[in-house]
Design a protein around this nucleic acid. Structure first.
Lengths: 162, 162
DNA sequence: GTTTGTGCAAATTTTTTGCATTACA
DNA sequence: TGTAATGCAAAAAATTTGCACAAAC
């Protein structure tokens, strides 16, 4: 699937969701979805707001918060709260389930995947008699550079700070 | 270990931490620690503030935020951000490593434990060349009551709402 | 033509900060 | 007594809300 295919598909998913829920198909909602699926990695509302202000389509923060809620409902995005007060989001369609490892030095977010998590999730659900819909696993640690000389070896800038 | 033993022990740990870091042993800090170790389950700063206001020792919110930071540093409490804007905390001493399952209906937090997480944590650390200090796993799901008749079967009130 | 969604600004909520005062060392 | 910690109140940051207007349906 090309990036364009993905954009068309998520547009279709949003359209169907809006119709099913009898919500209106506003240009803002599709512009926001398009912008989100043009971005890389995690993003916060303020970053999204600035991106859209600088580009083609200008929307208000209120509309962003509103639309993000809709996109969460139809699983087109995922919300994260990595121990900060500010929520981060990421695209969810066509992005395989993965978890996160955050460098405590530079705050860069790495992704990894371990199939055993699905088993843990399933087993915990059975034991506690829950239908588990999703999980959120985040590891916090220090890279070898930090361990050796106190300086981060990958040199990423903190997320959302530049 | 009795609850009193635990309180004495954490007091000792805090004392040693304060001495090591050359911080002052103020009565506020010990009163806050005592109050935290008198509470059950997760708590937020506001709840802690009200608890202390109603009880023996009155402290300012600023001091609570300050002290919570100190207690995090010496691992006497853990901070959680369960997808809300408000941070939650819990006691960490003598409470075995566990993870959380949150009911999407009543928001009650259940605890569970799976040793495989330690393996995942270790393996991810090796692959990504990180020294993992801690992890945070939260499962989100619906209990059987919600699945069957839309009503939560355990009937807990939402956390921090009553 | 209704009614929902948007934009703006004000309000809320949570956390942080500045500064005068208190009290630990 | 010197300096860090506290309390207060103001500021900041993130999100939510109220309301007039715009635009889907």
């Amino acid at each position: 699937m090309t990036p364009l295919d993905i954009k068309n598909k998520v547009k279709q998913i949003l359209t169907e969701h809006l119709e099913a829920k009898q919500l209106r198909k506003t240009s803002e909602r599709f512009a926001i979805l398009d912008e989100i699926y043009s971005m890389q990695g995690h993003f916060d509302i303020e970053t999204l707001y600035v991106h859209m202000k600088n580009k083609k389509y200008q929307v208000s923060r209120a509309t962003l918060y509103n639309t993000v809620e809709v996109l969460l409902e139809c699983n087109l995005i995922i919300k994260h709260q990595f121990g900060k007060n500010q929520a981060l989001f990421e695209k969810a369609y066509m992005y395989r389930q993965h978890d996160h490892l955050i460098c405590q030095d530079c705050e860069h977010v790495f992704e990894f995947c371990d199939p055993r998590l699905q088993q843990i999730q399933q087993m915990a659900g059975e034991i506690l008699k829950f239908d588990i819909e999703r999980h959120s696993l985040t590891l916090y640690g220090k890279c070898q550079g930090v361990q050796k000389n106190g300086k981060c070896s990958h040199g990423f800038k903190p997320i959302n700070k530049g």
